[in-house]
Amino acid sequence: MHGRIGLVLLVAVAAAVWVLPSYYTGLLTQIGLYALVTIGLNLFMGYAGQVSLGQAAFFGIGAYASAALAVKLHVTPWAGMLAGALLAAFVAYVLSFVALRLRENLLALATLALGIVINVVFNQWEFIGGSSGFKDIPGFTLGAYTFDQRAYAVLAWALLVLGLWFAGNLVRSSFGRSLVAISAGELGAQALGVDAERLKRQTFVLSAVYAGVAGAVYASQQSYIDPSSFDFLLSVNFVLMSVIGGIRSLSGAVVGAAAVVALKQMLQATVPLVLPGARGDFQSFFFGIILIAMLIYLPRGITGRFAEARRA
């Protein structure tokens, strides 16, 4: 079902990019890529019951891997995307042996630290540009055709549909049911033979793959990245997208990404009208207020609220 809804969205996006100004096309790409990261996060947080405050690190690893390969070794971004996903998966796999021994608040702190440490690596490692990052990252090509913003929007949403379809299959499978089981009663599931640690590890790695793929596309679409593109605040934004959309919902990932991106845009447009001369801090202030209100009144996210309304 998720795949079919995704296909409809993909067709809608593919049609919209021909009529939308390029600025909005860029926003559509952003929503598609952020939603892809959030699907992975929803699998890890919503279904497996864990928490990650370091997802921007995997997004960044995907971006840097693809950009470094393209700039330094002239590797096509398609292969860079694969490499970015694999590297993010590898890093998640190695880190999982430490991080996933921890629970709840400690896991949140560990993933937060992971995000900060990886950001420091981005900043300090001169081979990948250090604090100034990468410029002129080659774009995706298809034969002689070099991707423009419209093509990136379609690519982002095509990847999103693929991600939704796969995750949809996953949550309906024994794997998905076991994830919910360990999140609700880990010891009870283990007593049946369910290896909770392995499930969490596989889901953590999978969430890194989603983020890595999105990051690789982001690098080429922006053509410029630096460490500030993947800081702690981005990880917080991913968590917000997850929670606002509905943490145990795949469509919630898309809704959450769209809501956060749209909200920021709306504030950018309206705050200067209401408070002329207000600095950017005011937008963050109102963003925070609105988010707190949403978390109070929609604790199960936007899709969770719709699900409740349907049952009522």
Partner: peptide
């Protein structure tokens, strides 16, 4: 978060593989 049937299905999947799941 799971239905009663799905809870049983978790156990059946664990049994099916004859070792720890997944």
């Amino acid at each position: 978060g799971l239905t009663v049937r799905e809870s049983i299905e978790v156990a059946l999947a664990a049994r099916e593989f004859g070792a720890t799941y997944p």
